[in-house]
């Protein structure tokens, strides 16, 4: 759970920084996208780096889900008879939405790949440049709304996930507990803010 989460988290940081190239204009954004597909050429065939990344990410997503589902099932087995009355005392909204939030984020990732990577769910369609798909997709307020909901859920997922991973890897203690939680919150807000600034800039006409 923790290790696969951290790998995906590192990917998200790179992804978010890459997205910000949309502000540098059409040429820069498209050439960045082209560069990712040609890293290492001609020493290695085209798309080598990208394919390795994709395999790594699919493996980590599967591992993350496998761990989550086994924990979920274990928890259900551990309490077959639920409480008539149960009042939460300490849990955050973030920790409560980890499971269903994770499922929604997965559905979002599938849509996101169909929309911007493959282009099949995009108004511009496949075979267009990444920049065109970006502008076309985010010109629709409904698409931006869905991205916002999914990304806020992802942000909460990370807010609890970073803390939880620190615990699982045995790196937390009483002194660090507050720092880790503050860091998790600040990191999630920054990351999700970085992701959301692009769709909102398209919607508001800053990027066109």
């Amino acid at each position: 759970m923790a290790v696969s989460g951290i790998i995906m988290l590192l990917y998200l940081v790179a992804h978010m920084i890459g997205n910000l190239k949309a502000f540098a204009g059409r040429e820069t954004f498209n050439s960045y996208s082209h560069w990712i597909r040609t890293i290492g050429e001609p020493a290695v065939p085209a798309q080598t780096f990208l394919t390795i990344m994709r395999i790594l990410l699919v493996v980590t997503v599967v591992a993350h889900f496998w761990a989550a589902i086994s924990l979920w099932r274990q928890a259900r087995r551990a309490r077959p008879q639920r409480y008539v009355t149960k009042k939460p005392a300490a849990q955050s909204y973030a920790s409560r939405t980890m499971r269903w939030g994770g499922v929604i984020v997965l559905a979002f990732i599938v849509y996101h790949i169909l929309d911007l990577t493959l282009g099949v769910a995009n108004p511009e369609g496949p075979g267009t440049t990444p920049y065109d798909r970006l502008v076309a997709g985010f010109s629709n307020p409904l698409v931006v709304a869905f991205y916002t909901i999914a990304l806020v859920l992802l942000g909460m997922h990370l807010r609890h996930g970073i803390w939880s991973a620190t615990q699982t890897l045995g790196q937390s203690n009483k002194r660090r507990e507050k720092t880790v939680n503050h860091f998790a919150l600040a990191f999630s807000v920054l990351l999700i803010g970085g992701f959301l600034i692009v769709p909102f800039s398209v919607l508001l006409g800053i990027i066109d």
Binding site: R79, A89, Q91, Q167, T168
Partner: peptide
């Protein structure tokens, strides 16, 4: 024993 797994929610420590 059939206990569940820990997901670091913190209800235990609060109770």
């Amino acid at each position: 024993e059939g206990f569940g797994g820990c997901s670091n929610i913190g209800e235990c420590s609060a109770a």
